[in-house]
Every structure is written in structure tokens, then in C-alpha cells.
Amino acid sequence: MMNRFRKWLYKPKRSDPQLLAQFYYADEELNQVAAELDSLDGRKEPQRCTLLVSQFRSCQDNVLNIINQIMDECIPQDRASRDFCVKFPEEIRHDNLAGQLWFGAECLAAGSIIMNRELESMAMRPLAKELTRSLEDVRSTLRDQALRDLNTYTEKMREALRHFDILFAEFELSYVSAMVPVKSPREYYVQQDVIVLFCETVERALDFGYLTQDMIDDYEPALMFTIPRLAIVWAQPQLAGIEATAAQEAAQECPFL
């Protein structure tokens, strides 16, 4: 009764732009959709169920987006490192990845097997359970603070957010690595070396007049085959594993040399 009274008395205005107020209403909407999903018989109303699941995941995206904004403002120096994201395939890096991870964590915590990957799912389940518990703690703490003071970030909030951020980053790496091929650190560093080599090769070829800027701007087809060969020939003495005969063949095929 007391909680309902405090909610009625101190509930922030829907138009309030402060992050805690935005979170409060985003979380309310998520809870409403979740409650409707729980009460729905998906076999009798499959279309309605599909629509609600889509709405539910959209609400999750919105809640996580606001939580991330709060963390950027509340614990900017304590955010968990996400340098590993550069190893993800391009198609994985999209705005609603966080919501998919939350949904995946809940499914794993409930005992589901993700995409027929039984061993990976079993290995991730303890982390998924810990993550979902941490997220519930964060949501509860933020809701409580939204009904107290929208301008204050308490130490309890900060600690809950730090713990959640670490767990979420750990789960993100584990989950994505289990779902799609993720480059190893060595593969990623080799890719970076090749990018640098190609860039230096193009710059050197431009200096020597072997190609023109227009050819690069127009994506000249012959150039796309030539740049790797130029790179091999130029860097052949420094590159391990490239035989001299292969470099000579590349040089003979290169139209600019």
C-alpha cells in the first residue's frame, strides 16, 4: 500500500526529459507488454503473440538504450571494455544487438537451447542467469530512484550498474562467439597489418605514378587485383611465408611494374 502511495505521489512526469524519468516509463511499458504476453495463449492467437513478442523486444531495446545512457552519465570512467566488438562480423554490429542479447540471456536462463548449440548453451547458462539477476537488480534500483530523486545517482546505483556492465560485456562476447565465427586476436591483428600494408602500398604507388587518384576513386577493376600484388612484391622481403617464386609471378602479372 505504501509503495503504491509513493508511486502515485512521486511518479515523474511522462514529459520529463531526465534519463531516470525516461527509464521509468520505458520500463513500465516493458512490464505491461510482458504481462500481456504471460496472459496470452499463443496457440489460440498466434498473430497477436508474434506482434507482442516483436513489441516486447523493441521495449527491451529501448530500456537497454536508456540504461546505457545512464551508465555513460553515471559511471563514465568505469564502463567495461568492449574492444572485442571490432572482431565481430559487420552484420552483427547493429543497434538492436543489445536487445537480442537480453532476449537470448532470458531464454538460456529459462533452460532453452540456442540455435541447436547444446554445449555452448550449457556453458553460457550460469552467466545468463547471473546477468538476468543483475539486470533485474538494476531495473529495480533505477525505478526506486526515479520515485525518489531524478537528479541523484546513488552509490547503490553505481555499484549495480558497474556489475551489470561487466556481466553484459562478458555475455556479449560469449554469446556472439558461439553464434557466428569471430576472429581470434591473431587473425584480427593480421587483418590490421594487411590493411596498413595495402594503404602504404597505394600511397607509394601514387608517389611513383604507377596509378592515379581517379583510378582509386572509380574503383578501377584492374586496380582491385593489382593492389594486393603490388603489396606482396613491395613487402616480399619482410613477409614470412611468401616464397620468392610467388612474388616473382605476382610481379610478372602486375601491369604497373
Rank of each mutant, 00 (worst) to 15 (best):
E136L: 07
D137P: 03
D137E: 12
D137L: 08
D137S: 13
R139I: 12
R139F: 09
S140M: 11
S140D: 14
L142P: 00
R143M: 09
A146F: 01
A146S: 08
L147K: 03
R148K: 10
N151T: 12
N151R: 08
T154N: 02
T154F: 01
E155V: 11
M157L: 12
R158I: 12
A160T: 04
A160L: 02
R162Y: 07
R162L: 08
H163V: 13
D165H: 00
I166M: 05
I166W: 01
L167K: 00
A169I: 07
A169Q: 05
A169P: 02
E170Q: 09
F171L: 07
F171I: 01
S174A: 12
Y175F: 13
V176W: 00
V176A: 02
V176D: 01
V176S: 02
S177A: 04
S177N: 08
M179H: 09
M179L: 15
P185W: 09
E187Q: 12
Y188L: 07
V190F: 08
Q191N: 11
Q191H: 13
D193A: 10
V194H: 10
I195T: 13
L197D: 11
T201S: 06
R204H: 14
L206M: 04
L206V: 05
F208Y: 14
G209T: 03
G209E: 08
D214V: 13
D214M: 15
M215F: 07
D217C: 12
D218E: 15
E220C: 14
A222H: 11
A222N: 15
A222G: 12
T226S: 11
R229P: 09
L230S: 06
A231S: 06
I232S: 00
A235R: 03
Q238C: 09
Q238M: 06
I242W: 01
I242T: 02
E243C: 08
E243K: 10
A244E: 14
A246H: 08
A247I: 10
A247P: 01
Q248K: 07
E249M: 12
E249I: 12
A250W: 04
A251W: 06
